[in-house]
């Protein structure tokens, strides 16, 4: 199980933080600070696993962003890297050549996409296509709704 997933910029700013294991607010901000520091201090050729307070933290850097996930003791580190990669692929497909700004300005969509991929710390689908299809479906529903409500308030419907 993934306990949390963070996206952190190279400057150490949180761009997304999703907590699957119940964590207090203080613990969250402490982990965010300390893990970010650990991850940022890593050199390029080092392995993608760090140990933080006896927990396994997997991270991977994509351009200016670090994707960080803490997993359970018996979980597979290598497949976690693939899950992170899958998330990045989905973001990339969704935004079309995703960059940090996309995630900053559309953080809700980044969260929504993650919710289609990982629920309760577990992968919920293994098909990129399925995830994107569902995301699109939800987006369409949202737009339809917005349109309908605009028309309703405007008195047209």
């Amino acid at each position: 199980m993934i306990n949390y997933l963070l996206i952190v910029s190279r400057q150490g700013k949180a761009r997304l933080s999703k907590w699957y294991a119940t964590t207090t607010t203080q613990a969250k901000s402490r982990i965010l600070k300390e893990v970010t520091q650990l991850v940022l201090s890593r050199k390029v050729r080092m392995c993608n696993v760090i140990e933080y307070k006896g927990r396994k933290v997997i991270y991977r850097r994509y351009a200016s962003l670090f994707f960080v996930a803490e997993i359970g003791y018996t979980d597979n580190e290598l497949i976690t890297l693939e899950i992170i990669h899958r998330y990045v692929e989905v973001l990339d497909k969704y935004f079309g050549n995703v960059c940090e700004l996309d995630i900053i300005f559309n953080f809700q969509q980044a969260y929504n996409l993650l919710d289609e991929l990982v629920i309760s710390g577990e992968l919920v689908d293994t098909s990129k296509k399925a995830v994107l299809r569902m995301m699109e479906g939800a987006d369409v529903t949202e737009k339809d709704d917005q349109l309908r409500s605009a028309l309703t308030t405007g008195g047209i419907l």
Binding site: Q108, Y111, N112, D115, A138, T141, E142, D144, Q146, S149
Partner: peptide
């Protein structure tokens, strides 16, 4: 009742 509100609300 709006999906767009629900989506943000649940988030």
């Amino acid at each position: 009742p709006l999906f767009t509100d629900k989506r943000l609300g649940y988030l």
